[in-house]
Design a protein around this nucleic acid. Sequence first.
DNA 1: GTTAGTTATAGGTTTTTATCTATGAGTTGC
DNA 2: GCAACTCATAGATAAAAACCTATAACTAAC
Lengths: 314, 314
Amino acid sequence: MDLRHISFRLLEVFMSVVKTGSISETARRLHLTQPTVSLQIKRLQEAVGEPLLLIQQQKLHVTDAGLELFKTCQQVFGHFEDYQDFLTELNGGSRGRCKIAMVNTAQYILPKLLGPYSNLHPHVELPLEIGNRAEVLDRFERGEDDIYVFSHPPSLEHAQAARFLHNPLEFIVPLNHPLAHVKAVKLTDLMQYRFLLRENGSATRMLFESELQSRGLVLSDSVQMASNEAIRVAVASGMGIAVLSRHVLATDDTSFKVLNVTDTHLASHWYFVMRTDRYISHAARNFLKFAQQHVEQYLDTQWVRNELHNLDLN
Amino acid sequence: MDLRHISFRLLEVFMSVVKTGSISETARRLHLTQPTVSLQIKRLQEAVGEPLLLIQQQKLHVTDAGLELFKTCQQVFGHFEDYQDFLTELNGGSRGRCKIAMVNTAQYILPKLLGPYSNLHPHVELPLEIGNRAEVLDRFERGEDDIYVFSHPPSLEHAQAARFLHNPLEFIVPLNHPLAHVKAVKLTDLMQYRFLLRENGSATRMLFESELQSRGLVLSDSVQMASNEAIRVAVASGMGIAVLSRHVLATDDTSFKVLNVTDTHLASHWYFVMRTDRYISHAARNFLKFAQQHVEQYLDTQWVRNELHNLDLN
DNA sequence: GTTAGTTATAGGTTTTTATCTATGAGTTGC
DNA sequence: GCAACTCATAGATAAAAACCTATAACTAAC
């Protein structure tokens, strides 16, 4: 049997002949001429090297080899139908993988969207990568993921980005801090205290430092810590003060005090970013469509800035 | 996904690319050029309507759609391999069907060959048709079976035949018959008795009647019976006398007496007959090859006339 | 014995497929 | 920065596949 000379079309025609038991009838059904079908069968038999149909007592009779081939075809077409179903689900976004990489801070907000989405599409795999800005940027450069979540989006030469959430920064101090009960403070009042900062390159730190620089201020003392959690706990236990995203702070957390800094309103936005020079899975596009329609529903509306319609998701 | 534009070759190439993880390597292995493989993959992706391979971080990466297609291909090729195995068995004669039609009398001898053959090839179906000569001739005319067993083969215009066994006819009488203990009788001595005969057209009867005719003899009385068994039992119970094939008579059957008719030696031969204008299954050809090699072993050698080498079995 | 149906064959056309060579463009390693 | 890879693309050709029409040969039914 020489598979190379067998096409799916040939098998389709063969199956129809077996089903109808007639070459002419098959020709009619498939909108072919009778000689075409005759020839197809002849070629298939040559490729298989075995008679598949015989004319016995004036009617077509399927040989053993023919019947077995017919069964084989049924299985084979069955597998391709399954695959077609898979593709349909893939295209509908209800199956597949949506790989997202996000910076640490985003892990406080993204799950609110990912949870409902995952419930809607349980067959979509959602591998999440969480890292500091440098790590996520690295992945972005290499195009390892479908979607990236940044507060300061990187160069958009081969990417598109759209913001979806306001990201205000807050100054927090220990409960027993001298400023803890001051109604209104100014940025300069804070310079004398020790600041607990994320690593260099962190979006929060970048924003804070550029503000300081533009106003000619310098920190008297700072300590670098690896995570937002560490900073929050450290502040609560009196190690120093810090600037953190509003979203990192639980509203009911009373282990520290949020200052009212009247002359400074630091804020950035959360962006969904996707490369334009890389294949983005249907599942990922579908997730962004979902996000576009549902950010208001699942995230705190007071911070939502839904500009996801700017993304080209097709 | 458009199956019509997908060939098995295309899938083969695709599978190799997935396995090797490289287009160039596949080209080398399949003795193709690299652009050929690139193009094949491109065409396959177009036919599927979905990317199957991506270049990520300088190496080929299989997408979900690609991986699923790969699995589908494995299954599909698996089915064709199974089918190929089936064909191989079919060709080797160890699988398939061997349809044999034989006249009644042959059922006393053919099982001795069919038994051992069937043990050797348990997967070969052996549907047997047994009928009187007219019925088997009818089947022969319509070409309904692979092999026919006749003692008088029909016209050989679209058939070939070869004999394999001598078929002597014997005269039998009841134990209490006047001739039962006569040492030697002549054919004319028998004419006065009632003959039990098979239906008109039976080879035994034809042979007997043509002998009578050539010697100008006429039976005084005859009764027609439907089977050899019926005749044997009828003779034993004294209804009359009969001519029967030697092979129909068990050697240890003492319920009747075999006459020694000195002036008459009626005999024919058993033939295997196959049509030349019809497809003959491998299993059937294989059975005849088996018969050619083993008739001496399984049939009474004293009657064997093995001329099966005259058959064209390829 | 004519008609209507079947399958087979011969001969031809248009498309598609399976390849190739040549070449370009991007990466990796030294 | 060049050699040695990778994959992609363009352009060309020879083979094959997928059809067609016309026609023959056979069978069944009226």
